[in-house]
Amino acid sequence: MLAITNLTVGYGRTDILRDLSVTFTPGHITGIIGPNGAGKSTLIKALLNLIKPRQGQILLNDTPVKSQLNQIAYVQQRADLDLSFPIDVEHVVLTGVYPQLKLFHEPTPAMHDAVTAAIDQVGLTDFKHRQFSALSGGQLQRVFVARALVQQAQVLILDEPFVGIDLASETQIMAILRELTAAGKTVIIVHHDLNKVTTYFDDLVILNHGVIAAGSTERVFTRSNIGQAFSEDLGKVLFIEEVNNG
């Protein structure tokens, strides 16, 4: 179980997240939603040990995450990458085993097999030797999901994975994530599209500089919580729509 207790993080003099406590259940897909600037990216950076918390701790199975960073796989936003880098699909996926490799060690044959299997699982076998920059948005995202699979981590964090990708890729990625949670992994998705919240997430964390609400999606995804985190209006619009649809 991934547990955050009393976490305070920030930059300079400002705290972005204050006294945040939340747990993520293995075998569940947890969505993190919140308005722009709510601290979603900051929370992820803290989970990945990319910024130092001012207070609080992050434990995975009762051990600090800091000491087991290779147990967290991270699929970042596509926009953050240098797409012109001279590397092919297979090699990008292969970098997923680097966290398990010590200095001066080369990937083993078993690792190469795992790479081939992961590429097959995301349906990109025909694109194995394709230059990275010659892929569509959806294909790129599947490459990074394949890399995360190869990492064989207990926790998988995806930052806005469905922005600007095709529906087929989105469906395929969700199916793979379901397989992972069925195998007991913890999956965390930072998400901005409130429409798919109820279909995608078992659990939900609604964030705005702290936890507004957290728990099973059914219980937490309510008009008042959304109203509190985003705005009254959004809460009204979103849930009136739902009533109409129903």
């Binding site: 960073l69 991270y74 953050d80 990458l81 880098f85 970098t95 200095l103 001066f104």
Partner: peptide
């Protein structure tokens, strides 16, 4: 000696930092 580390830190520095 540092080929894979140089590659990943050039290609995807966030990923490299995230695994320590």
């Amino acid at each position: 000696l540092f080929f894979k580390e140089l590659l990943i830190s050039s290609f995807d520095p966030t990923f490299a930092q995230a695994y320590g």
